[in-house]
């Protein structure tokens, strides 16, 4: 993937910043990758190369690690991320049907991002909301008891939000305390 010049600078600045606040121990590799991804949204190759340099570990190892763990993404995610839970409870009551419904409406497969970068779709092993099965996590909001009809509703809402071209203004899941 080609990076624009300012994207490149942003990545370099971000890595420098994160490296500064860590001990540069190999033990910090996973926390560092987590921080980078939290800021940039994914792990650009450039970032991985710089981290490898900073921690004095082979870049091949950083790559091996980033491709091993589920959490890490090597490509930018879509603007809206949908995670469909396929834990036991969700699977038993049609989790795969929910996943397929999203695939049909987004016109992508699980693990992919739509070409317009609006959507990405993932399956997750369990989000721990088994009593609300089947569950999908739509931009950090947990949706319970999802049906194909509800998927259409969710997609409609997301499309509308996109059309209004509004900035991301999701209610924060962990809002302030009373």
């Amino acid at each position: 993937m080609q990076l624009l010049k300012d994207e490149k600078e942003q990545i370099l600045a971000c890595v420098a910043e994160v490296l500064k606040s860590n001990s540069k121990n190999r033990e910090d590799l996973i926390p560092i990758l987590q921080k980078i991804q939290a800021i940039i949204g994914y792990l650009p190759e450039l970032a991985m190369a710089k981290i490898a340099e900073g921690l004095h570990v082979p870049a091949a190892d950083v790559y091996g690690l980033a491709t091993f763990y589920n959490q890490f993404r090597l490509n930018p995610p879509g603007k809206h991320q949908v995670k469909v839970c396929l834990g036991t409870a969700c699977y038993m009551v049609g989790g795969t049907i929910v996943l397929e419904s999203f695939e049909r409406r987004m016109e992508i497969r699980e693990g992919e991002t739509s070409p317009d970068r609006l959507y990405s779709l993932e399956r997750v092993a369990c989000v721990g909301c088994c009593t609300m099965a089947p569950v999908a996590v739509v931009d950090e909001v947990v949706e319970g008891k999802v049906t194909p009809t509800r998927v259409d509703g969710i997609m409609l809402a997301l499309n509308e939000a996109n059309n209004q071209n509004a900035e991301k203004q999701k209610p924060e899941q962990d809002g302030g305390k009373a």
């Binding site: 091949a60 091996g64 091993f68």
Partner: peptide, 25 residues
């Protein structure tokens, strides 16, 4: 590659059935 040549060009990547010996990127 690691212990004798001391380079670090290759390593294991990915997981499960997709596990491979490969280079960075």
């Amino acid at each position: 590659d690691r212990e004798e040549a001391k380079i670090g060009a290759i390593g294991f990547a990915r997981r499960g059935i997709n596990r491979v010996v490969t280079t960075f990127k």
